[in-house]
């Protein structure tokens, strides 16, 4: 059976330059057989949404360690929605206080992965939750 490869955009929004995690995740997803596009640093939500559309991805993995997740994440979800990408999963990784998690999920973040998460858990989550395409 030849399944279509899962396509993921790994994105670093905002001014935070901590890209070690994003790059480790990008490589782990690629090694798990997914197609991965990495945006590089200092992206705006608009740039990320445009890249997601252009690359026709199944999921966007956002990495934020600056504390700006409450501002940036809802904006990315909204922009994806505006361009008809409601099926595109938005995942968040980085430094996210416990108190923010429920709210972010209610705003459309599919899952939040904190430091210490195994890359295998992220791969499994994507395989189980990316919607199969027609």
């Amino acid at each position: 059976m030849n399944e279509k490869k899962i396509r993921v955009l790994v994105a670093k929004p905002g001014l935070d330059g901590h890209d070690r995690g994003a790059k480790v995740i990008a490589r782990a997803l690629r090694d798990a057989g997914m197609e991965v596009i990495y945006t590089g640093l200092r992206q705006t939500p608009e740039m990320i949404a445009a890249a997601a559309l252009q690359e026709d991805v199944d999921a966007v993995g956002v990495s934020i360690l600056s504390g700006a997740h409450n501002t940036l994440c809802p904006r990315i979800v909204q922009l994806l929605h505006d361009q008809g990408m409601d099926d595109c999963l938005v995942l968040l990784g980085g430094i996210v206080p416990q108190e923010d998690i429920a709210k972010l999920k209610s705003q459309g973040i599919a899952e939040i992965f904190l430091p210490g998460t195994s890359t295998e858990d992220i791969v499994r989550f994507l395989r189980e939750n990316v919607k199969p395409r027609e």
């Binding site: 790059k23 480790v24 490589r27 782990a28 195994s118 890359t119």
Partner: peptide, 13 residues
């Protein structure tokens, strides 16, 4: 740097 970060993560896992 990326190789080293990735190998470290794999060793942790």
């Amino acid at each position: 740097i990326q190789d080293s970060a990735y190998q470290y993560q794999k060793a942790v896992e």
